[in-house]
Amino acid sequence: MQKNILNKILTIGIGLIWLANGLMCKVLNLVPRHQKIVGNILGDGFAKPLTISIGVLEIFMAVWIFSG
Rank of each mutant, 00 (worst) to 15 (best):
W18D: 01
G68P: 02
I14P: 00
L6T: 14
M1E: 14
K48R: 13
T51R: 03
V56H: 00
S53K: 10
Q35C: 08
K8R: 13
G68R: 11
N29E: 04
L42P: 00
M61H: 04
I54E: 01
W64L: 07
I17L: 06
I41R: 06
G55M: 04
T11N: 06
L28K: 12
S53P: 00
W64C: 03
I9N: 09
L10P: 08
I17T: 07
H34E: 06
W18V: 04
M24C: 09
T51P: 05
T51S: 03
L57T: 04
M24V: 14
F46Q: 15
L28H: 11
K3C: 12
A20W: 14
G22T: 03
L28W: 15
V63S: 00
P49Q: 08
G55V: 00
L10F: 12
S67Q: 10
L30N: 12
G68V: 07
I5M: 08
A62S: 07
I37P: 06
T11D: 06
T11I: 10
K3Y: 15
M61Y: 03
V38S: 04
G15A: 02
K48Q: 13
A62E: 01
K36G: 09
N21V: 13
Q2V: 08
N4K: 10
I14K: 02
L10I: 14
Q2I: 12
K3V: 14
L42H: 07
L19G: 05
L19D: 02
R33C: 04
F60G: 07
P32V: 07
V63M: 05
K36F: 06
C25Y: 10
V38E: 00
P49Y: 10
K26S: 09
K36Y: 08
K36E: 12
M24W: 15
I5N: 04
A62P: 06
I54S: 01
Q2E: 10
N4V: 12
K3L: 14
P49G: 05
A62W: 05
T11M: 09
V27N: 01
D44A: 13
N40M: 14
W64G: 03
L16T: 13
P32D: 04
L6S: 11
L19S: 01
N21G: 08
N7P: 11
I17P: 03
S53L: 05
W18S: 01
D44M: 11
L30W: 15
I65D: 05
K36M: 12
K26E: 04
I9E: 05
F60K: 08
H34M: 06
W64D: 03
T51H: 04
N4Q: 14
V63I: 10
G45L: 09
T11Q: 09
N7L: 15
L28F: 13
M61I: 12
K26N: 05
I41L: 06
G15F: 06
G39H: 07
L42R: 06
